[in-house]
Amino acid sequence: MAQPTITEQLAKLQFTKDLSELTRTALAGIAQQRTLIAGDIVCREGQSSRELFLIASGHVALDMFVPGRGQVRILTLGPGEVLAWSSIVGNHGSTATGTAVEETHVIAFRDEEFMQLCQSNHDVGYPVMRELAKAISRRLVSTRLQLLDLFAHESA
């Protein structure tokens, strides 16, 4: 089976599937495919991050370092989810370390090219940034559910 093109993959992934074909093609134009093996680090907490990643397949875990506890795993991300958005909406400093937990295919966007695309063409930029906002919103809801500790009553 031939490897699907980036455009084909974008048409299926949650982050990009609702965008217009034109927008997806524009994104594909600045995207790079990358294959990670288990243990590969895609962004490191506290360090500068210059790429936004969209997971096409596989999983990436996010860890935060807590003195005395070490790396605490806060979340595992899977297909269709984005990470390292600090490169776009933050100040480029990663707030967590992203590590591939298995062979993982990601689609990477360089921050300058991504911002350049969104700023120069608002017909692309607005829907893309809206999808990014939706992704952040979903992540926020998931974090709230984690905070609610819904299974606390089941723990001794």
Binding site: K12, G70, L75, T76, P79, E81, R138
Partner: peptide, 25 residues
């Protein structure tokens, strides 16, 4: 399978269940 809170030994998914549904095809 997922857990809300991982442990050192846990190599599996961390996160809430609805998120698994969000991302499954």
């Amino acid at each position: 399978v997922t857990v809300d809170r991982g442990t050192d030994a846990w190599k599996g998914n961390v996160g809430v269940v609805p998120q698994l549904l969000d991302r499954m095809p």
